[in-house]
Design a protein around this nucleic acid. Sequence first.
DNA 1: TGGGACCATATGGGCGTCAATGGGATTGGC
DNA 2: GCCAATCCCATTGACGCCCATATGGTCCCA
Lengths: 146, 146
Amino acid sequence: MNRFLSNATNRIDAKGRVSVPSAFRSVLSGGGVRELYCFQDFVFPAISVGGPELLDRFERQMAAEDPFSPAANEMSLLVHGGGVFVKLDPEGRLMVTDFIRDFTGISTDVMFVGRGDYFQLWEPQAFAKAQAAAREGRKSRGLRPE
Amino acid sequence: MNRFLSNATNRIDAKGRVSVPSAFRSVLSGGGVRELYCFQDFVFPAISVGGPELLDRFERQMAAEDPFSPAANEMSLLVHGGGVFVKLDPEGRLMVTDFIRDFTGISTDVMFVGRGDYFQLWEPQAFAKAQAAAREGRKSRGLRPE
DNA sequence: TGGGACCATATGGGCGTCAATGGGATTGGC
DNA sequence: GCCAATCCCATTGACGCCCATATGGTCCCA
């Protein structure tokens, strides 16, 4: 399996560390990724995490449009100003910094949510709410999975 | 037979495992499927299960629209964040995780319901109710089975 | 036609491995 | 020299793999 899928909740220990689920770690090492790029998601109260190529993709998108446009300017503010690089410890854990806590509301547990080519860090209850809202949205519009 | 038909109810054992009905397993192995994709159904309190091509279908649908659109983002939250890959043990059983229990209400028994090119996991009583409601709905609209 | 052997499926449990977690030790920066 | 981040090692608890048992159905043969 080569993409980030499903979700899992892990506890933050006394030192502020949390284990990245094994399944996610194998996707990362499978892609030869050793350093992670994290940024505050554009729509959800979650931190999005992926390999450095995630940042590359954003920069390409910005380059595609007028670099002085309000949209590109705004995006740079989020992507560059709201992004950090982090690396995992030998056991595959990452530090849950205030940068992450403040933006997501995470305090004791972290929910890892696969998003295909990247994954996200959520406060568990916030995710439940967002997912329920997404499901309601689809239902009310009468959309089916097929 | 190459699709999932009829239904069967099996018991969850002390370790939280349940046997997938033999008929369903032969459909899977007939299609060369070794890993299953499960997701929380969009309309029913049931887990839908199929081969990885189910996820591929969703991803193609998302790729067809703007990947940054709210609709695509919302769908990814359900399809990626609410989906899991599961594999069966050598005896053809799967683990009934909290992910499945919480969403379906399943506690001691699992009802397997064929849906053509995929199948679903239901809490037996919930299925009976949903089926009765579906039958009433058709009757009141004067529809015939064909 | 009835009995019995055989087979397949569902189910139960032992055991080893690995991931998640916790805590001590060491290093490096301020 | 102190605080904090990083590394290393220990524990435990869950999950996967294996083998054993039961139950029901089918087929064969007397």
